[in-house]
Design a protein around this nucleic acid. Sequence first.
DNA 1: ATGAGCATTGCAAGTACTGCAACACACCAG
DNA 2: CTGGTGTGTTGCAGTACTTGCAATGCTCAT
Lengths: 254, 254
Amino acid sequence: MSQTVDRALSILPLLAEGPADLGRVADRLGVHKSTALRLLRTLHEHGLVYRQSDQRYRLGARLIALAQEAMENLDIREIAHPHLVRLNEQCGHTVHLAVYEESEVLYIDKVESRYPVRMYSRIGKPVAITVAAVAKLLLADLPESERRLLADKLDYPMYTARSTPNAPAFLRELEKVRDQGWATDLGGHEESINCVGAPIRGGDGRVVAAMSVSAPNVVVTADELLTLLPLVRRTADAISGEYSGRTPVKEVAP
Amino acid sequence: MSQTVDRALSILPLLAEGPADLGRVADRLGVHKSTALRLLRTLHEHGLVYRQSDQRYRLGARLIALAQEAMENLDIREIAHPHLVRLNEQCGHTVHLAVYEESEVLYIDKVESRYPVRMYSRIGKPVAITVAAVAKLLLADLPESERRLLADKLDYPMYTARSTPNAPAFLRELEKVRDQGWATDLGGHEESINCVGAPIRGGDGRVVAAMSVSAPNVVVTADELLTLLPLVRRTADAISGEYSGRTPVKEVAP
DNA sequence: ATGAGCATTGCAAGTACTGCAACACACCAG
DNA sequence: CTGGTGTGTTGCAGTACTTGCAATGCTCAT
């Protein structure tokens, strides 16, 4: 809607691919170098881009700080976290929390017992939307029209032989998930990884988030993982209850 | 430099404080509501802000994804990480990695043994710049003039009785840190927490990052923590070596 | 029902953005 | 040391774009 801002913001995903110099940015934007320079300067003043020693631009630290605050404003994360930890303690597997926003599904929390360290590497990453259990749960709750529209728009990469192949199959799967109230991903993203997930609902019954437990084949078979389903659903329901109980609006002191 | 973009970007930190409606955004920006609306729309199209069900705006998920990619482009993090993990395994305490950028110090990695879960809650957060050991290390290496300028500009909140009280004291401390090649924070941020840190240097000797080990008083006394100093310095030096060894520039395939 | 409060849209005025071209600077080669 | 190519940077005039106003919708609470 606003040309100048639009151009400026287009720089960010461009720089996310890696550092770039002025000429490259101008080319990719399709504008004159001087224009790109002034946009970059403005972004720089706000700390969203950083100029490294070789004069090339890359994404800046303020962006990371902003994203941090953005996550902290998602109160579902705060409420869910202790439950995720408890679930992890009980079953020992990786636990995910994800939300849907603007045609994307994003992990916003993760508890992992075996590799306690690499966790940040996934938080914030978009989910494999056509196969992940949490994605199915979130999309299954969308209004009919929006769901069809999105399903048509998506790509269906065949990560494995068991990946969802196309839109009709995906829509069928979503129907199933919606009816049964839980979802799985059995080797649809990585051959040896299975997941089982359940939805978290707000006071009005709408799905506001989804959680899942993941484990590799070598640790537990898919069948064994499925025995955790009641536990997962209980956890999800507990989070739902707490979320709808407390009023989610935060008052700001005057 | 560009008024429109400047205004648009000013919305982001504003929304970081919490969701806001159109009127509030317009007021804070000092522009007409219709102007604010169009700026918000543009931000929305890029996924940087999200419109929640009550029509208020908050920071969007794309921001989190962008920050994720930004972090992955910081190659010092990648190189340092295994070293941080090893150090954590040896001493059992929390290990931090931080960088300096544009008058801010930011944690970009953290390994914590006791609470393996809460780690992301700090990564990306600006550091208490006047007291943290990593901050001292990073600022101590700034050019004289920049250091003085920054020291004057900073606030000196008294988190505890042992916090750095003012600019002169801070500058003296930085001198000391620079000379000795390591730094501590003994209860300067939280009464019962001590830290000891060491700098990570690039090939040209400049400090590119800093790391520290933190532990509460109740687990080890400050003196005991200081016995870890050689280990911390060895780890930092190992990272420095690996960082300067490999050429830090990444060539893009043509 | 009725009004208050909010978001939204069309439009005219004018400001601020754009692209050009000239300049400055660094780096490399001869 | 010097000329040349590749950068990034700045001043300027034209105009495309943004802006604020005022009027219109819309939703919710009374």
